[in-house]
Write a protein that binds this DNA or RNA. Sequence first.
DNA 1: AGATAGGAGATTTAGACAGCATGTC
DNA 2: CTAAATCTCCTATCT
Length: 485
Amino acid sequence: MPVKVPEKTADQVVNLACDTIAKKKQALVFVNSKRSAEKVAEDIGKKTGVEEVRLKELAREIEGVLARPTRQCERLAKCVKGGVAFHHSGLAPKQRELVEDAFRAGAIRIIACTPTLAAGLDMPAFRAVIRDVKRFTQRGMQHIPVLEFLQMAGRAGRPKYDSVGEVIVVAQTQTDQEFVEEHYLRGSPEDILSKLAVEPVLRMYLLSLINSRIIGPRESIVDFFGRSFWAFQYKDLARMQKIIDRVLNVLVEWGFLQEVKEGYRATLMGKRVAELYLDPLTAHGFIDALRKSEGKKLRAFTWLHLVANTLEMRPLLRVRQKEFEKVQEKYGLVEPNLLQHEPSMFEPEYEEFFDAVKTAMMLDDWIEEKDEEYMLEEYDCRPGEMRVKIDNADWLLYGVHEIAALLEMQPVLKEITKARLRLRYGVKEELLPLIKLEGVGRVRARKLFRAGIKDLGGIRSASLEKLSGLVGEKVAMKLKEQVGQ
DNA sequence: AGATAGGAGATTTAGACAGCATGTC
DNA sequence: CTAAATCTCCTATCT
């Protein structure tokens, strides 16, 4: 039924938030973009009139999470002072945690968020305000699935504290309201689609199932998939058979499977690829690139680009129109170091190739010790997103390393490990000796290096006083201990 | 001259999972 | 079923 709250402002969401706070309750506001989450939180924050010491402290803590605060940190801190926060995948992990804890503790009254908080069973609120029931997809603006709506709605009502919870959907028109009632409140969740129908997934499953010997003989493969959910939905067994055969052929061609009498068996490489959870296409790309690496000038960028140019790294950073020239220019400089090259302009992968180049550029800036604020300004990549990209690239680099090891390409192994270490810590090569020490990350390592302490020997010969001045007494003691003093 | 309002057109758009071996500021 | 908020750049108008 329609909800009435005092209309303090022209913005219904702000009014709902203020009403929630006036009732001494909490609300989650679900929106469809990170930008909206931030703006909504900001708009509400201006009107709450909340002022508490604990919120000021929290704001300070949030702003101090990174070595240098980004403009996102500052914005969040400002909202938090008013008892409001935004929450999405772009927040630094520590900030996410602080916001969630403060909400559970009752300090933060309202969180404007993307679906990040929809699934968290641990984040109940008196009200779940659903501002957007549409989201941008590859086919334009579309209604979100009923299941997702129900997940957001499920955050309303805290079992221990409230006897009821409220789900409020913000509808602009009568038509919208009717649609919500019909589709989301009275409708049923849509059918689940089989994921096997997506080729990369089928590739991985086929290899993995054959590797673990769940299937192998030809008939068993047909039989297995014939009884799958995919077959149940797809119905056309003959066409499925054709698709499976095509994928099997490709896996054989790539050297991950071998045909044995009456069926298939995973090769040594196929086994490793399955264990690494890599898409066989990605693994094939790695192998192909590694084989071409001999005699090339290999740099850290070589490896960063190799892993950036994979399905697993998606979504990639996108090259904006006005950036295109800059990326092209940079590409010209690094091209001799790359193992995979520019597809023709008319190929569908053309654009994506440069997205990967840009993503590799960002990772390269990271290992050149650029900080989070720089990444946000230069690449529009928020700290949380940055972290995910680094983690993914780190995992993929491990994959490249393992494949190179299997190919017995000893010379590149060290280089890959070095690139991986640099990526993980975000440091130039010169800091690698210091990074090995417990308690030393990119910031402390740089501090030590600037003071002339460049390796373990430097730690040994530096006085405890000097170390203490740089990294604090406790860490200094820990460092001395690690070099046996 | 400088401020400001407004319009046309461009730009942008959620989240999270995989390996491995432990620990940043 | 297939948008909408926000940003950028430019121009007209006002002080």
